[in-house]
């Protein structure tokens, strides 16, 4: 059964635009799939190679600005920007990794955090290039969401399948060895610097692509949105942790849960609070309705605490534990 789950999910995702006919649900699914890609990008460098990164926003933002600037500055189609965004991000990842992989553990994590923040400031201050705080507005190519949906679905499939394939090869074994023990890895002939660079570049490539896709889809970006520390970088980590660090399908599960949870709060528990406010006409409920829509961070916090306490390997990593919580009880019933 478990073996067929990814296949069933894939088929559902492919036929989804036939089921979800309204733009709202299609938009949500596009976001979920984008988070699958960002989460997978984080997972390859942090989950599989053990180099914890707060830098998802750096590559996401650079990808988005690449597409945006192609249209805004060069007058070309932003789709050209999408085509090269992955390579542009690798061009950034290269010197960055070269310098900062001399650092290990938390020190590396800190420089990735700095990278995102520095880029956010550059995008804000360099107004002549980026338009600064005002951001970049481009004309969307399609009115319908369906083309965008299939593009991001294709990228998501490519990322997940790509990582799955890589993890079965020499590269994958080397990534895991580096995560487990860099000194042991070196003694086994693994060029840790090189393979960390490789992992970071794969991560940067797919994160940049999805950033560019975000630009062409949304039609608008500004530095606060695409270089956001907590809406992009930390969210990427949460997707990874909730789904399962270092697992192939973890980011898929994590993306559904995190986007779902965010939407659950944003809509005030799917309109429950608004409805209560209207029914009871109580001022307190109306105020609560206003605040709960901004309380998704609190929801994330609680979720992460629960996951770390009860499912330290994430939902996919501790799948056996989750199933086990139900199965033994059933077995006992049979015995009786």
């Amino acid at each position: 059964m478990k073996k067929y789950l990814p296949l069933i999910l894939l088929i559902l995702l492919i036929i989804f635009p036939l089921i979800g006919r309204d733009d709202y649900h299609r938009h949500l699914m596009i976001l979920v799939l984008m988070w699958v890609v960002i989460g997978t990008g984080w997972n390859i460098i942090a989950g599989c190679t053990g180099q914890v990164s707060f830098g998802a926003s750096a590559f996401f933002g650079v990808g988005a600005y690449t597409a945006g600037l192609f249209s805004f500055k060069l007058g070309l189609s932003p789709w050209w920007g999408l085509a090269v965004s992955g390579l542009v991000c690798m061009a950034l990842a290269f010197p960055f990794g070269w310098i900062s992989f001399r650092l290990r553990g938390p020190y590396f994590a800190l420089v990735t955090l700095a990278l995102g923040e520095i880029l956010r400031h550059i995008a804000t201050v360099w107004e002549s290039l980026t338009g600064g705080m005002v951001g970049i507005l481009i004309v969307q190519t399609y009115v319908s969401k369906v083309p965008y949906y299939y593009m991001v679905l294709a990228l998501a499939i490519l990322s997940v399948v790509g990582v799955k394939v890589i993890m079965g090869t020499k590269w994958g074994y080397y990534f895991l060895s580096i995560r487990e023990d860099q000194d042991a890895a070196e003694s086994l002939g693994i060029n840790t610097q090189f393979y960390k660079m490789l992992s970071l570049n794969i991560s940067a490539f797919i994160t940049g692509m999805v950033g560019a896709l975000y630009m062409v889809y949304m039609g608008f970006i500004d530095p606060k949105v695409v270089f956001s520390l907590h809406d992009i970088s930390i969210m990427a980590i949460l997707v990874g942790i909730v789904g399962g660090v270092g697992t192939i399908y973890g980011p898929v599960v994590g993306a559904f849960i995190m986007v779902g949870l965010q939407e659950f709060f944003r809509t005030g528990f799917f309109g429950l609070f608004k409805w209560l406010g209207a029914v009871t006409d109580a001022q307190a409920v109306k105020v609560a309705a206003k605040y709960v829509s901004e309380a998704h961070v609190l929801g994330f916090g609680i979720l992460v605490v629960l996951v770390i306490l009860y499912l330290p390997n994430g939902i996919v990593g501790d799948w056996g534990k989750i199933i086990g919580a139900f199965i033994p009880r059933r077995k006992k019933e049979v015995q009786r």
Partner: peptide, 19 residues
């Protein structure tokens, strides 16, 4: 000793053999 802890014995040895 420096085992690659969260990998199986087989995977530890495969990682070495990849050299």
């Amino acid at each position: 000793v420096r085992p690659l802890r969260r990998m199986t014995v087989l995977d530890n040895v495969i990682a070495a053999a990849f050299s």
